[in-house]
Design a protein around this nucleic acid. Structure first.
Lengths: 143, 143
DNA sequence: AGATTTTACCCCACTTTTCCCCACTTTTAC
DNA sequence: GTAAAAGTGGGGAAAAGTGGGGTAAAATCT
């Protein structure tokens, strides 16, 4: 289970250090994908396989499915951690997540989220604005 | 499994470098075909054989099938990678995909898609317009 | 058929990117 | 406070991407 929030930087070679706490669970490599809300996800190989198998089974005859398959696999990358526990983030994913320098990396149960620090700050601010609504929703689920 | 998105160029001799990550899976040669959505597909020899067998088995008595068979095989090409890992893209396929100079090559599970950069940009823009539908779909398959 | 032009393909050269490795700084643990 | 681990930066070799020359094969023309 991935837990906790970390701040880190991407360097000029587009490498990001995976927080040390997450490395053992990933076992030297991971799948980096496009996530919701303009952030990126890191999945374990196993979890990715499960998703990929479901998605690959969609009918190619449907244009929306084709787009979806293209978007999903085209924005997924197998990343091997280097000697220092870093992964390289490819251009298309950096652009999607507005990644330039400062990052926030946060564990989210079965995946790790990677945010541009700025995007995350904006997002958190926006969340505050609608916080009462959010609390109401939690109440529904008795949390 | 083909993954990731790459940008590349076609040169004056109509050659395109196949992204290095895809070469091992193709093993020196591949089948280049006309894809959906005004892009081209690269299949492994094995996957192409399977498809070709299915398509060849369609009843010739049906005019629509005859046309499809003609179109499919007429726009398929066996491509051998040269010493630098490039394939030559024939004229009919270049025209179909509006290929002139800049390309986007994207892995889509069992095939590789080759797009003219301009066509892909237009396509992606159109996709953004209907993004909510798309996001819902992703949500279905996310874990 | 022979000559000429075009196309294909092998090879070499240059530029850019990637990746491995080492070094330094900062944080964590004891 | 000291040692170890984590995070960050960068040099340099290797690989990937790109362009182009030269020769052989194919197509076209006369």
């Amino acid at each position: 289970m991935f837990l906790g929030t970390y701040t880190n930087k991407i360097d000029d070679k587009n490498r990001m250090a995976v927080p040390a706490k997450f490395r053992d669970q990933l076992g030297g490599k991971c799948m980096l994908t496009k996530g919701f809300d303009e952030c990126l996800y890191i999945y374990t190989m196993e979890d990715f396989e499960v998703m990929a198998a479901k998605i690959a089974a969609l009918p190619q005859s449907d244009a929306d499915f084709r787009e979806f398959i293209r978007d999903f696999f085209g924005n997924s990358e197998l990343c091997e951690l280097d000697g220092q526990g870093r992964i390289k983030i490819p251009q298309n994913l950096r652009e999607y997540a507005h990644i330039t320098k400062d990052l926030v990396t946060t564990g989210a149960m079965n995946k790790v989220e990677i945010w541009s620090a700025e995007t995350k700050a904006d997002f958190d601010l926006a969340k505050k604005m609608k916080d009462s609504k959010f609390t109401d929703k939690l109440r529904e689920f008795s949390i």
